[in-house]
Amino acid sequence: MEPFKLADKTFRSRLFSGTGKFGSTAQMEAAILASESELVTVALKRVDLQKENDTLLTALQHKHIHLLPNTSGARNAKEAILAAQLAREALETNWLKLEIHPDPKYLLPDPIETLKATEELAKLGFVILPYIHADPVLCKRLEEAGTAAVMPLGAPIGSNKGLKTMDFLEIIIEQSKVPVIVDAGIGAPSDAAKAMELGADAVLVNTAIAVAGNPERMAEAFKEAVIAGRKAYEARLAPIATNAAASSPLTSFLYE
């Protein structure tokens, strides 16, 4: 499998993982390790002065793991830019998952604010991975604005509905000059495999692993699906035909 180059990093794994919704930090750590993900998202929260610090960062301190802070909670470009600067300071990385979703019901990304924030954050030297709708035109605009990759959604965040946007993902993959990472909505390893077969450079999975019956096993299943899908893409899938095409010789040896 070809390694995946993105900005200044090279990844062996094309499965990126989220850290939300796990039952415990230990369960999260086990699943993240089983996934073999090398890029792992974290969110930001206000520090509670009365509480002990949580152990999240300690659990993610593994040599192969790079952190990708997100701007979840930002409702516009201005808030996202502040969140990005705080994230860079707190986690000492200029990598950023830019997400701006003003509506909590569907958590759909705001394309206008995301484009505005990308323009500003690119000037500030961030490696930007914007979470967006599967909109091919927006992807080109983000490319011009200096994004490092695009992260179109398969379906709403946490919905596990799979690649509802497949036709548009195909257009994005065909046209994109920056890596395409399918984010959100991937519910089953087969969805991840499908995204990779279509030619996505990577996928980002969180809920489907975190809330599975056995997150660690599911992480392993996703890891294998992503490898299978990528290998299939690199091997180039056989064409689809309307009529049957025999795989066995049709000599009528039983009669005649």
């Binding site: 989220g18 930001l44 929260k45 206000r46 949580d54 952190l67 705080l86």
Partner: peptide, 10 residues
């Protein structure tokens, strides 16, 4: 003053 840290998220 706003003080933030990392937390679990996707």
């Amino acid at each position: 003053i706003l003080i933030i840290s990392a937390t679990q998220g996707g």
